[in-house]
Design a protein around this nucleic acid. Structure first.
Length: 443
RNA sequence: GGUUCCUUAGCCAAGUGGUAAGGCAAUAGACUGCAACUCUGUGACCGUCGGUUCAAAUCCGACAGGAACCUCCA
């Protein structure tokens, strides 16, 4: 399998550090709001990657955090006059509900910052002891010029950053590039620390949560493109400073998502909540739509994109349903091995840096012979089953699932009556039965 | 201003040196009692202008347009 590594800007052969096992971490949300459709992209992309690894028989340890300490959370808690926990648990639940409704496989670990606080404080203290951090009146900053190759993930170099740095109003930092590890706070949730009461900076949380769970370098670190700088560069800088190694062999970043060609933002009033779109078009169509483009490319959401996803998905549903119905009426089994050529084409596409558009092509090129085999005068059950299995297995990697249609005795009787009415040219009756079968979703 | 990246048919979207995948929409036909479904056929001077090469959508340069980040938004 090849994956594009943001660290090297190259497609690289992916070799896990431990044979047969993939350790991956994806930056999770700050839980101060409902998940929007943009948040759904990394959820879907990395769940699909995980499914692909599992389809190859690998074991995946998948961690993704909840950032439940943040200014925005504190502000919201103050605005609603409640404890931060009320806010964070509300949106953690909402986020989990979105994950579940998108048919994602369960996370192995979903750590929270508040549950990792001791380790975070110890980590910052160790950075300070080694001279990588300094305390200014209760605020602790990371000394960026102490690490080599800062900016390796985003391909920024320190000189350019210094040139582009804005004049900062706060002058207590040694360098404008230094970032906060610990912030002195007067309001909101806070903890005791060697530097006084305060709360941790965002960049330390992820690196500690990763180290806390994996205790070594991991295989894949994922997240949105927008997190490359400064977040991921800062994670790497801290890890190198204290642990002497980077964080992940492979860094993967998903592209951003636009609505009708514009960035999604509150000021434009075009924020689409994930739960709303899932409720409207369903998990299958949502996943299909977000996987239509390659994960690194920008993706535009529009009414047309929704319609296209729904149309294409309907074709998949139709062929599955018709195959299942025909198999049951004809009394043959759909069990058996998947068509080998089709699966090879599919994995060739997907193993090439998760090329889902080409994966869909392989799926379409499997559906075509399935339709042909299904409609031949004397369907070959083995051939039908092999294409059917291929379609099902490919859909499973995409995380798209349709329940298997089970014909009841009444359904079988309806089919019998339908065919008889047609044979007797009683089209009024046959149309009625056909409509009934269609209503039941059994046509 | 700096960094990184993108620009392929009406639309979505693959393709990273060797005669431009796939899908949606459109259209013609086959199948059907009619329809739906399905199958078959029909579409691209690859943003513009230069350059390298026997050969470029693919490499290099310029220009135009767009995006992300540099302001703790995936």
């Amino acid at each position: 399998m090849k994956l594009f590594n943001s660290k090297t800007n190259k497609n690289e052969e992916f070799v896990p550090r431990h044979a047969g096992e993939v350790h991956m971490y994806v930056c999770g949300p700050t839980v101060y709001n409902e998940a929007h459709i943009g948040n759904a992209r990394p959820i879907i992309v990395f769940d699909t990657l995980r499914r692909l690894f599992e389809a190859h028989g690998m074991n995946v340890v998948y961690a993704s955090n909840f950032t439940d300490v943040d200014d925005k959370i504190i502000q919201k808690a103050i605005a609603e006059n409640v404890d931060e926990k009320v806010i964070t648990s509300r949106y953690i639940d909402a986020y989990n509900a979105v994950r579940d409704s998108l048919h994602t496989r369960p996370l192995t670990y979903a750590p929270k910052v508040t549950d990792t606080m001791d380790a975070i404080i110890a980590f910052i203290k160790a950075l300070e002891d080694k001279g990588f951090a300094y305390n200014v009146d209760g605020n602790v900053y990371f000394r960026v010029n102490k690490v080599d190759n800062y900016g390796e993930i985003s391909k920024q170099n320190v000189d350019d950053l210094l040139v582009g740095a804005r004049i900062e109003e706060e002058t207590e930092k040694e360098s404008p590039l230094d970032f906060a590890l610990w912030k002195k706070t007067q309001e909101g949730i806070q903890w005791d620390s060697p530097w006084g009461r305060g709360r941790p900076g965002w960049h330390t949380e992820c690196v500690v949560m990763i180290n806390d769970r994996f205790h070594e370098m991991i295989d894949i670190h994922g997240g949105g493109m927008d997190l490359k700088f400064p977040h991921h560069d800062n994670e790497v800088a801290q890890s190198k400073a204290l642990l002497g190694h980077g964080i992940a062999n492979t860094w993967m970043h998903n592209g951003m998502l636009n609505i009708d060609g514009e960035k999604m933002s509150k000021s434009l009033g075009n924020v689409m909540l994930a739960k709303d779109i899932i409720a409207k078009i369903g998990a299958n169509a949502t996943r299909w739509m977000l996987l239509m483009a390659h994960y690194r490319a920008p993706l535009n959401i529009s009414e047309e994109a929704v319609v296209q996803a729904q149309t294409e998905l309907a074709k998949v549903e139709t062929v599955l349903k018709q195959t299942e119905i025909k198999a049951q009426l004809s009394g043959f089994s759909l069990e058996g091995p998947a068509d080998q050529a089709s699966m090879t084409a599919f994995f060739d596409a997907m193993d090439d840096d998760l090329n889902t558009p080409n994966g869909f092509m392989a799926l379409f090129e499997t559906m075509k012979p399935l339709n042909q085999a299904l409609r031949s005068r004397t369907p070959d059950a083995t051939i039908v089953a092999s294409y059917y299995q291929a379609v099902r297995r490919q859909l499973d990697v995409f995380g798209i699932d349709f329940p298997v249609v089970e014909l009841t005795q009444e359904d079988r009787d309806d089919y019998e009556a339908y065919n008889q009415a047609k044979a007797g040219k009683d089209f009024v009756k046959s149309d009625l039965i056909r409509a009934k079968l269609a209503d039941k979703g059994k046509l």
